Simulated assay, not measured.
Amino acid sequence: MQQEDLLKQIEFIKEIDKLKYIQRKTRLFASDRNENDAEHSWHLAMMAIILSQHANVPVDVLKVLKMVLIHDIVEIDAGDTFIYDTAKNHVNTDQERLAAERIFGMLPKSQCDELIAIWEEFEAGETDEAKFAKSMDRLEPLLQNVSNDGGTWKEFGVDYAKVYEKKQVIRNGSASIWNYAEQLIEDSVEKGILKKK
């Protein structure tokens, strides 16, 4: 049984290497190179460790780390959906559900069940850990776009109202980080890198 579990786990580890090839729309800080999903997940994990003291309530950091490290694994099959996409909603889809079942299903059942439950919890965004994890997920691209003089906001014609709407989720996990993020958004308007209609 242990050898069988190990072989399944190794196959899963090989499969998730594909996350490194999933390109995101956002670019690395002060760079013209697009970030990939693996880089994004790693960065969120580091942010969660460093910024956890700013969560609205104490959170289980290990659970938050699991969330941010696995939340985009489904994009191996489903692809990355740009948060400001006007044709496709940035919410859990049937395609992502099938991807979660296939990819996490490669693992032994107990690990599969745990990771699917953690992925579902992140997607629902209702627990303290999920709220904080989603705060990290929304903060990182904000910081990237500011560092790139508007980045994807300029490239895709995203306006202030849309950015504000999507980013205010940060408040649910951390009011203090939201205060910082909100000021960044306002400063971006003043600098002319984010347009109000």
Rank of each mutant, 00 (worst) to 15 (best):
residue 52 S to Y: 07
residue 52 S to C: 05
residue 52 S to M: 05
residue 53 Q to N: 12
residue 53 Q to H: 12
residue 55 A to Q: 08
residue 56 N to Y: 06
residue 57 V to Q: 14
residue 59 V to M: 12
residue 60 D to A: 13
residue 60 D to I: 03
residue 61 V to Q: 06
residue 61 V to P: 03
residue 61 V to K: 06
residue 62 L to S: 11
residue 62 L to M: 10
residue 62 L to Y: 08
residue 64 V to M: 13
residue 64 V to W: 09
residue 64 V to I: 10
residue 65 L to H: 04
residue 65 L to E: 03
residue 66 K to E: 14
residue 67 M to F: 09
residue 67 M to V: 11
residue 67 M to D: 07
residue 68 V to L: 05
residue 68 V to D: 01
residue 69 L to F: 08
residue 69 L to Y: 08
residue 70 I to W: 09
residue 70 I to M: 09
residue 70 I to Q: 03
residue 71 H to K: 06
residue 73 I to K: 04
residue 73 I to V: 15
residue 75 E to A: 04
residue 77 D to H: 04
residue 77 D to F: 02
residue 78 A to E: 01
residue 78 A to G: 00
residue 79 G to D: 05
residue 79 G to W: 03
residue 79 G to K: 00
residue 80 D to E: 12
residue 81 T to Q: 05
residue 81 T to F: 02
residue 82 F to W: 08
residue 83 I to G: 08
residue 84 Y to P: 07
residue 84 Y to S: 14
residue 87 A to N: 12
residue 88 K to V: 15
residue 89 N to P: 02
residue 89 N to H: 09
residue 89 N to S: 10
residue 91 V to R: 06
residue 92 N to Y: 12
residue 93 T to L: 00
residue 94 D to A: 10
residue 95 Q to E: 13
residue 95 Q to G: 00
residue 95 Q to S: 02
residue 96 E to N: 11
residue 96 E to H: 09
residue 97 R to L: 02
residue 97 R to N: 08
residue 98 L to P: 02
residue 98 L to F: 11
residue 99 A to L: 06
residue 99 A to E: 04
residue 99 A to N: 07
residue 100 A to G: 11
residue 100 A to C: 06
residue 102 R to C: 05
residue 102 R to G: 05
residue 103 I to D: 06
residue 105 G to Y: 04
residue 106 M to L: 13
residue 108 P to E: 11
residue 111 Q to G: 00
residue 111 Q to V: 00
residue 113 D to T: 10
residue 114 E to K: 10
residue 115 L to S: 01
residue 115 L to D: 05
residue 115 L to V: 00
residue 117 A to N: 13
residue 118 I to W: 07
residue 119 W to D: 09
residue 120 E to G: 06
residue 120 E to F: 03
residue 120 E to P: 06
residue 120 E to Y: 07
residue 120 E to H: 12
residue 121 E to L: 02
residue 122 F to T: 05
residue 123 E to R: 09
residue 123 E to P: 10
residue 124 A to D: 15
residue 124 A to T: 13
residue 124 A to Y: 13
residue 125 G to R: 02
residue 125 G to N: 12
residue 125 G to L: 12
residue 126 E to K: 15
residue 126 E to Y: 09
residue 128 D to M: 04
residue 129 E to Y: 15
residue 129 E to K: 10
residue 130 A to P: 06
residue 130 A to E: 13
residue 131 K to V: 13
residue 132 F to C: 08
residue 134 K to G: 09
residue 135 S to M: 14
residue 136 M to D: 02
residue 136 M to F: 03
residue 137 D to A: 13
residue 138 R to K: 14
residue 139 L to K: 01
residue 141 P to D: 00
residue 141 P to G: 00
residue 141 P to Q: 00
residue 143 L to H: 00
residue 144 Q to T: 01
residue 146 V to M: 08
